[in-house]
């Protein structure tokens, strides 16, 4: 296909591919954090639970802190690692 050749030349696609991979990495991190705290701390008998701000510790770390961390991570990564590129094909040869 003609597009294949084109993809190797277009530097915007390198950026796009990298950002998509970052997305996969973020989701993996998100999942691991969520899973590890929920089932790591939550599998104990309920009578042995610790509580933070009134919530069971597994819930606090997995759901509350987990969300806060994801919001911070997404913000930092977008601000510092995502590049602004033009989305239109200006200045390129038309097909």
């Amino acid at each position: 296909m003609a597009n294949d050749k084109h993809e190797e030349i277009d530097p915007r696609f390198k950026i796009a591919n990298r950002e998509a991979l970052i997305g996969v990495g973020l989701a993996l991190f998100n999942f691991i954090w969520w899973f590890a705290f929920a089932y790591g701390l939550g599998s104990k008998p309920v009578s042995e639970y610790h509580y933070i701000l009134g919530m069971p510790a597994w819930f606090f770390y997995s759901c509350v802190i987990g969300s806060v961390i994801m919001i911070i991570l997404v913000t930092v990564i977008v601000k510092f690692f995502f590049k602004e590129v033009p989305l239109d094909d200006e200045g390129e040869e038309s097909p």
């Binding site: 950002e19 970052i22 997305g23 996969v24 989701a27 994801m70 997404v74 989305l87």
Partner: peptide, 12 residues
């Protein structure tokens, strides 16, 4: 869903 769809489909 807050970040995954937009990042995966993304600029490409």
């Amino acid at each position: 869903t807050g970040y995954f769809v937009l990042m995966i489909l993304g600029k490409k």
